Amino acid sequence: MNKKLLIILLLLVTALYTHAQNKIVVFQSDFGLKDGAVSAMKGVAMGVSPDLKLFDLTHEIPAYNIWEASYRLYQTVAYWPAGTVFVSVVDPGVGTARKSVVLKTNTGQFIVTPDNGTLTLVAEALGIAEIREIDEAVNRRQGSEGSYTFHGRDVYSYTAARLAAGVITFEQVGPVLPKQVVKIPYQKAVFEAGKLKGTIDVLDVQYGNLWTNISNNLLKKLNLKFGDYLHFIIFKNDKKVYEGDTPYTETFGEVPLGKPLAYLNSLMQLSFALNQGSFADVYKISSGSEWSVVVNKR
């Protein structure tokens, strides 16, 4: 074989292989930090390789809230380099028949998680290059075979660390699965009959703002200008919870303190807030797949 061609092939193989070996592992859970659960997961990872670089996405997902786990991955994964391995453990069905999987996105990141709906949004946003079921006969912490309630430590962190450190290849995770995941149903963002419909995906929890899945591109269909007013109705499980009008503004400071506004959040999606107040607290609004919104230009 031509020496130059051989070098090129070796470089390509190396580049593909190192996508699973950038040594970065990012953790997400609903564990909180009040006990040693998160530290135990990180300890298992460091036991695989002390050269790993460990980071946290969040451990403050509300207990059992698979939807929010899905959203936080969607919010975050794309900003990390190819080869980064995420561990997401929001697993109310731990020990049951739900599959334990590793999904590789089309952009090269890996997500180690139960296939329980956690992958809903990131699979849609970044696509599925391949998905494999974790073979626990190989990828399970030694001595943990009798433990059924802490897969985050015994299976997910262990597998993620082995993958990130290059101890195993992606192919050694386990058997290939069809390119589909368990999905949580929700209102997709659409424009119909002059109105926008969408989901209140998540709260900007520090401030109580409402973040929807209605993108700036879709919002343009209303031919809005800053200063125009929007009429919006919020539903929970199709029951009206709130109805009102608000200006569409560039900044919070364009309305008086405590007054509502509509704006684009950091993901360039339509959001609602009170200037220096909590829309969620004042009007008893939450977020998730059961919360929807209908918006039109007033």
Rank of each mutant, 00 (worst) to 15 (best):
166 G>P: 04
200 I>H: 11
219 L>N: 05
269 Q>S: 09
290 E>C: 06
47 G>T: 15
239 K>Q: 15
64 Y>Q: 09
245 D>W: 11
96 T>S: 15
250 E>K: 12
273 A>N: 11
283 Y>M: 04
213 N>V: 14
148 Y>D: 08
248 Y>H: 05
195 K>I: 02
13 V>Y: 15
142 Q>K: 14
54 L>N: 03
17 Y>W: 03
296 N>H: 13
82 A>Y: 02
127 G>C: 01
68 E>D: 12
47 G>M: 13
167 V>R: 12
115 D>C: 09
15 A>I: 14
41 M>V: 12
109 Q>S: 06
245 D>V: 14
80 W>F: 13
140 R>I: 15
46 M>T: 08
191 F>H: 14
156 Y>M: 08
174 G>E: 07
261 L>H: 04
46 M>C: 08
104 K>H: 06
194 G>C: 11
96 T>P: 12
254 E>G: 12
77 V>N: 04
261 L>Y: 13
68 E>S: 02
182 V>E: 12
196 L>S: 07
198 G>S: 09
41 M>Y: 00
209 N>R: 12
138 V>Q: 07
132 R>M: 08
186 Y>R: 04
2 N>F: 03
202 V>Q: 00
156 Y>L: 12
130 E>Q: 07
119 L>I: 08
56 D>K: 00
291 W>P: 09
135 D>M: 13
261 L>W: 10
100 S>F: 11
218 L>G: 05
169 T>Y: 07
236 K>E: 15
164 A>P: 09
17 Y>P: 04
149 T>I: 09
241 V>D: 10
88 S>P: 07
10 L>K: 09
47 G>V: 15
141 R>V: 10
126 L>S: 03
174 G>M: 09
271 S>M: 06
247 P>I: 01
258 G>I: 02
122 V>Y: 05
297 K>F: 05
148 Y>H: 12
153 R>V: 04
194 G>N: 10
33 L>A: 02
76 T>M: 12
72 R>C: 10
232 F>V: 03
100 S>E: 14
294 V>R: 00
237 N>M: 13
137 A>N: 13
142 Q>P: 11
48 V>S: 03
264 L>T: 00
149 T>D: 10
24 I>S: 07
42 K>T: 01
278 S>N: 06
251 T>N: 15
50 P>T: 14
21 Q>K: 12
21 Q>H: 13
149 T>M: 07
223 N>H: 13
125 A>C: 03
289 S>A: 05
45 A>F: 04
227 G>V: 08
170 F>Q: 07
199 T>V: 03
261 L>Q: 03
261 L>A: 03
71 Y>D: 09
245 D>E: 02
286 S>N: 14
89 V>C: 13
99 K>A: 15
152 G>L: 05
46 M>S: 08
248 Y>G: 07
35 D>P: 01
136 E>W: 10
